[in-house]
Design a protein around this nucleic acid. Structure first.
Lengths: 115, 115
DNA sequence: ATTATATTTCTAAGAATATCGAAATGAATG
DNA sequence: CATTCATTTCGATATTCTTAGAAATATAAT
């Protein structure tokens, strides 16, 4: 499971790349990520689980939320590849939009109470 | 099709990584690659086609053979990522075995006549 | 030209993946 | 302790991927 191909598979999904890019800036809870990315909660949860099993992210409880962040120390190969991929992703309009949303998102507003 | 995620998907397969690694040393024809990797010819052909469509490799006719080689100039992101991945792949025993086989393989012997 | 052969394309099967909604879990709040 | 709410798990479906063998293509050799 620490084969290069497994790492590559873990990051070969647009949704997961968007999640990793988000977590680059700051840690976020599942409902924040869900709100920003716009997929079903269960889908986001499954992506997070996959990234966690690949040791690319970690989680930590915070009251009623679970915050996810990039794993540290990072997987050695990921640490080498990610800065290059990350930079390239910034040209992606979807990723840029995600970043804007992330700057404004407030978990007290979006989680739970309807919208 | 020049999105980072498409490049990552193209290289997220052990067979395709093995092919890229082989072509790093020298260009090879389809039957040589097939002999070394040990998958069906049609499977190798389909991997080669995918890598070619992703602009990671190129082909060139050579008598009755078609030689494949790494594309040059390489895709910019691939050019950055590949040396890092390639180095890591050298720890893979399968990749090491491929390299040995590639050094010995002779297309006049293996192509066509039975074995 | 006929044959041999290297490669691709077609067809099909099985495995893996992405997705969602509903149900379950589990912790925090009142 | 009952309720609320964030998150995960389950069940189900649709899609994509990997693979192989057979048929088709095209080129070289005889």
């Amino acid at each position: 499971m620490h084969e290069p191909v497994d790492l590559l598979k873990a990051i070969s999904d647009h949704g997961r790349l968007r999640i990793l890019k988000l977590l680059e800036t700051r840690s976020l809870c599942v409902c924040e990520i869900t709100e920003i990315i716009g997929l079903a909660t269960s889908t986001i949860s499954s992506h997070l689980n996959l990234l966690k099993n690949s040791r690319l992210i970690e989680d930590e409880k915070d009251g009623k939320w679970i915050n996810y962040r990039l794993a540290s120390p990072a997987d050695p190969l990921f640490a080498q590849l990610w800065p290059l991929i990350s930079k390239r992703l910034e040209l992606d309009p979807v990723v840029a939009a995600d970043k804007k949303k992330a700057a404004q998102v407030d978990r007290y507003k979006i989680c739970g109470n309807g919208k």
